[in-house]
């Protein structure tokens, strides 16, 4: 039982982390986030389902198509919901993305349908035994893919030209402009990447759970809690916080039952922020007068 629960915890945790990295990456370049990251995740799952199951596309076509559409969604979020407000120094992007999340959830509900659907995948149908519990290949893949993407993000940022351009925008956007870097574009790309991460999480989680218009809401909130707990500006912190959150959830479920997971985890979020306002792994920033 412990193994199975911990495996679920790590799996869920790495998906929270993936979504939270989406918050992280837009935050560092623009100090803004898509508050409706959960809807982007849902969109990924719904698009994946529609391509794979409804229209029967082969998987090698369905996945790129889903990710491309998600990236376009991310670009649209930045262009229409964030930039109009952040460029005039307003923080109304927060409400705008919340509203857009509700809008997208409802649009999907009316087009995709109100009933949850099952995203069947060959990866969940077979199973093998591991430490006394049956494990499907997907369950093992989820944390691995999560970690791989986080690692890839780190490597790209550290070792590629694109990554350095991104870093430049993070560390000193004004100087980046002087180098001829179009910071606006980098911010837009960050939103696209953020939506793609969410879509990957959505497609990975869907076969274990189900696909519905409402699947992202709670997930997105938890991922946001993870991002905040990790100290949203620190990628490593965010990933660690994701795993921690998933494990705490799993452990609370084992010992107290799933009814208490939300009380415990969200109370912990309040407590953690009360004690460490910049997140568990964040660092204090000096305010200049």
């Amino acid at each position: 039982m412990i193994t199975a629960a911990l495996l679920t915890g790590i799996g869920l945790g790495s998906m929270y982390a993936l979504l939270a990295l989406g918050f992280h990456i837009t935050y560092v370049v623009s100090r803004t986030v898509n508050f409706a990251q959960g809807s982007a995740m849902m969109l990924g799952a719904v698009l994946g389902y529609s391509f794979c199951i409804t229209w029967g596309w082969p998987i090698w076509l369905a996945i790129p198509a889903t990710l491309t559409l998600s990236a376009i969604y991310g670009l649209a979020v930045e262009r229409f919901l964030v930039r109009p407000f952040s460029s005039r120094g307003s923080d109304a992007w927060l409400m705008a993305t919340v509203a857009a999340g509700i809008l997208v959830d409802n649009l999907v509900m009316f087009t995709f349908g109100k009933e949850p659907r099952q995203f069947t995948s060959s990866l969940t149908e077979s199973a093998f035994s591991l430490l006394g519990t049956q494990v499907s290949p997907l369950q093992l893949m989820i944390p691995l893919i999560g970690a791989a993407i986080a690692l890839a993000l780190m490597l790209v940022r550290r070792y590629t030209r694109l990554g350095k351009v991104l870093e430049a925008c993070v560390q000193n956007p004004r100087a980046a402009m002087l180098m001829g870097i179009r910071v606006n574009w980098v911010v837009a790309i960050a939103f696209a990447v953020s939506a793609v991460f969410a879509a990957i999480a959505g497609m990975l989680i869907a076969p274990l759970f189900n696909v519905s218009a409402e699947m992202g809401t709670l997930f997105g909130l938890k991922a946001f809690a993870v991002a905040i707990l990790g100290g949203i500006a620190s990628a490593g912190g965010v990933f660690a916080a994701g795993l921690l959150f998933g494990l705490v959830e799993a452990i609370v479920t084992i010992y107290f039952g799933s009814a208490f997971t939300q009380i415990f985890t969200f109370a912990l979020v309040i407590l953690a922020l009360a004690l460490r306002p910049d997140g568990l792994f964040g660092s204090k920033t000096l305010v200049k007068v």
Partner: peptide, 11 residues
């Protein structure tokens, strides 16, 4: 108890 948000109910 089971919840709508439970990803699995193995525990």
């Amino acid at each position: 108890r089971i919840e709508g948000s439970d990803l699995d109910v193995i525990p």
